[in-house]
Design a protein around this nucleic acid. Structure first.
Length: 275
DNA sequence: TCCTGTACCTGAAAGC
DNA sequence: TGCTTTCAGGTACAGG
């Protein structure tokens, strides 16, 4: 399930593999994957060069010539890979970008949750889904004072607040459980109960954890692979996520699983207590 | 405005 | 063994 580190790893892979390639044809097998007119999506991209691949939060921004951008979200199980034209089409391949060198950039998505949208480059900041995104989880953008103020205005639990993408972007279910464990904060703690000291620790752990996960090439739990079809390495670093019944690495108390905001949630009942 | 619940999807695992 | 049910979760959207 791609979160920021996985999307960043895909972005880097796509840059290496297909930057500079020209699209000769786009085949769309599952039109619902395309937001807006899927035929227009295909005809507009014909002849365009993929000039760069950017990222905002968990959204990939594929930059094409003549001022076009494809905004792509992998959601749960979306993945891109490159194969030669004529190679067997795998099950769950929904969009194929034919390239001028005989290769194909293929988008595969078992759950069909992923979405793509074609927009004019520069207008992505006006898309509601991108407009609402909080800062990137890096020290230059993500400021602890604004984070604390944002949390003080919320009464809901910290876990769904972090999954919202409004206060900071890039966290998903795995990394939220991890950073809350690292910060000794119970996932059901109301946001406005957190002290400045709690928020400072949480802020620093979010930056540190996501940077480490990017370095490791992301986390593979179910099916994630990057554009080279490599799995991530960060699943071996997880301390709490999916560790139900296993001893907490800090205090040896068994990790528990509860449901918070309809999401499976893993925490240490000793280290992480509700305030 | 904020918050909660649900739909979208399929495959794996669990239950019978 | 084979069928049915439950679960996994990121985002958009509806409704309170």
């Amino acid at each position: 399930m791609p979160e920021l580190p996985e999307v960043e790893t895909v972005r880097r892979g796509l840059r290496k593999l297909v930057q500079g390639s020209r699209i000769t044809e786009v085949e769309i097998m599952y039109p619902k994957m395309i937001e807006g007119d899927s035929r227009e999506f295909a005809t507009t991209l014909r002849g365009k060069v993929l000039e760069d691949v950017d990222r905002r939060g968990k959204f990939l921004l594929l930059r094409f010539s003549d001022g076009w951008t494809v905004v792509s979200h992998l959601r749960m199980e979306g993945k891109y890979f490159v194969e030669k034209k004529g190679a067997p089409i795998r099950k769950h391949t929904h969009v194929i970008f034919n390239l001028d060198d005989g290769r194909q950039l293929r988008y595969n998505d078992v759950r069909k949750f992923g979405r793509m949208r074609l927009i004019k480059t520069g207008s992505e900041t006006q898309l509601p889904s991108l407009k609402k995104l909080g800062p990137e989880p890096v020290a230059a953008d993500f400021k602890v004072a604004a984070f604390y103020q944002g949390l003080q205005k919320k009464k809901k639990a910290i876990k769904p607040a972090l999954l919202d993408q409004n206060l900071v972007t890039g966290l998903g279910n795995i990394y939220v459980d991890e950073v809350l464990w690292m910060s000794k904060i119970h996932p059901q703690t109301p946001c406005n109960h957190l002290t400045q000291a709690d928020v400072q620790i949480l802020h620093d752990n979010i930056i540190q954890e996501l940077a480490r996960a990017v370095e490791a090439g992301g986390t593979t739990i179910r099916s994630y692979t990057d554009a080279f079809q490599n799995e991530g390495g960060f699943q071996f670093e997880l301390q709490a996520y999916q560790k139900t019944g296993q001893p907490c690495p800090r205090c040896q108390t068994p990790i528990e699983r509860i449901v918070v905001g309809q999401r499976g949630t893993h925490f240490c009942p000793n280290c992480q207590q509700v305030k």
